[in-house]
Design a protein around this nucleic acid. Structure first.
Lengths: 251, 251
DNA sequence: CCAAAAGTGTTATGTCTACACCCATGA
DNA sequence: TCATGGGTGTAGACATAACACTTTTGG
């Protein structure tokens, strides 16, 4: 950054009284799969402003931590889950008045977790909520601050990440069936993918999925038991599945 | 964001004295094409810290403007160019100590311009510099703060944007030949693209390029005159050119 | 034996790459 | 008429989508 003279008149230097002070927060959009649909975690605000409204979890950045550390800390405080990876910064928001009391710039992160349902079940139900992302995006449920915009951007980013990185495996357990993995893509993109072609794409490129040799129990309606896979290391470098198929736009 | 009790002890509320104050700046990586290579604009710092070093342009965000407005204002102050679009936010940086004096979080933007060479020529040469991006990435030239990291991220982002959006046309003039457009891809990705196939990909999808009917003068060595095109509106929705070809990694 | 879900085979269609070839110009 | 760069044609390699078919389970 430069410290040149400012267009409005007075030169801005390094005297701490010369530049405007902001609070910096980190907000986290926590995505997870539940009932085959994309869900997200909300918390109820305990203080003004927007007291009692639902919001995405977050908190103030401390001077002695990085933004990423702040996000990781907030995620751990909120869910008890400490996942160093899969925390992706996707935007910064600083519109004047986005917080009615003070100047706040927030840096937004996307986290992908599994089993958030069980986490929420262990919490006071009045304070945490797992909702379908569609309910937020359609404004069926409204959020504090500019959190609606943040959620929209988060989902857009998640859709891209799904195509480009390996976040798909973060939605599922340490072992998973290809049907479960496919459901992640279908729910996030709002499309239907051909199971046969999906399997081929994923299995073909090597390093993506590693067969464990084990199988699932079929559901009560029967069906052939599915093979269980675990994620290979190649999920770091970009995924094998790409979209375009007929869209059904479910969220 | 929430205002729950903070892990380190004292609860954090909305009392302005209770949360840490940060300066918020906006930094802009300005990319342009020059001599067929990707270049960027640097400015010399006039004040401590890092006085006299090269840095990317930027400045403090004001409380009454959005981050995007701040970026646009800084870009205009620095170059005189006021381009509302093609200013893409790509990251926020807030490591403790990144500014040795105060706590600064910076929000970084990517701008793509043409004719920056002429802009720089009109400036005091000691204060502004147009350098090949490769010289920065290879640390042949070193920058103030964590600006090296910011530049690396900016170029990564530009490479993705090139594939996904229409920023390619922002590098070239209002009318351009397909060879000029191809040079943008080649320089940014560090690859060579087959001219014949490039043409087909671009011309095929409609809405990308619109023939003007006019032609260029061939160079001094002769050659068939190239058709001039202008950008279609479809460049907003994702580009027709994708990478993979043999890489030569030039920056 | 039937339904259900997993997994395999096959084929038509489309896209991408490489490269041969033709066109328009300056010297 | 030759060198240079623009522009077109085309055949093979490869990827994708659609869907019929086989396998393995529960009822």
């Amino acid at each position: 950054m430069t410290t040149k003279s400012d267009g409005a008149g007075a030169p801005i230097g390094y005297d701490p009284s010369q530049f405007p002070a902001f609070a910096v927060t980190v907000d986290i959009v926590i995505l997870t799969m539940s009932d085959g649909a994309l869900h997200m975690l909300l918390v109820r605000r305990g203080e003004a402003p927007f007291k009692g409204m639902w919001a995405i979890p977050g908190g103030f950045k401390r001077p002695n931590e990085t933004l990423h550390e702040a996000a990781r800390r907030e995620l751990a405080e909120e869910t008890g889950v400490d996942v160093p990876t899969l925390l992706t910064q996707f935007g910064a928001y600083g519109d004047p008045g986005r917080d009615p009391r003070i100047n706040v710039v927030t840096v937004a992160y996307l986290a992908v977790l599994r089993d958030v349902g069980t986490i929420v079940a262990g919490t006071d139900a009045a304070d945490a909520l797992l909702v379908p992302v569609g309910d937020v995006r359609s404004e069926k449920l409204d959020l504090a601050f500019d959190h609606l915009q943040i959620v929209r951007d988060a989902v857009d980013r998640a859709r891209v990440e799904l195509e480009v990185t390996g976040i798909a495996t973060a939605f599922v357990g340490p072992t998973f069936t290809l049907a479960e993995l496919r459901a992640v893509y279908e729910a996030t993109w709002g499309v239907e993918l051909d199971a046969a072609n999906f399997r081929r794409s994923v299995v073909a490129e090597d390093g993506w999925v590693i067969p464990t040799g084990r199988r699932t129990q079929p559901g009560p309606a029967g069906g052939r038991p599915a093979e269980l896979y675990r994620a290979g290391r190649a999920w770091k470098h970009g995924g094998p599945i790409h979209r375009l198929p007929r869209t059904t736009e479910r969220n």
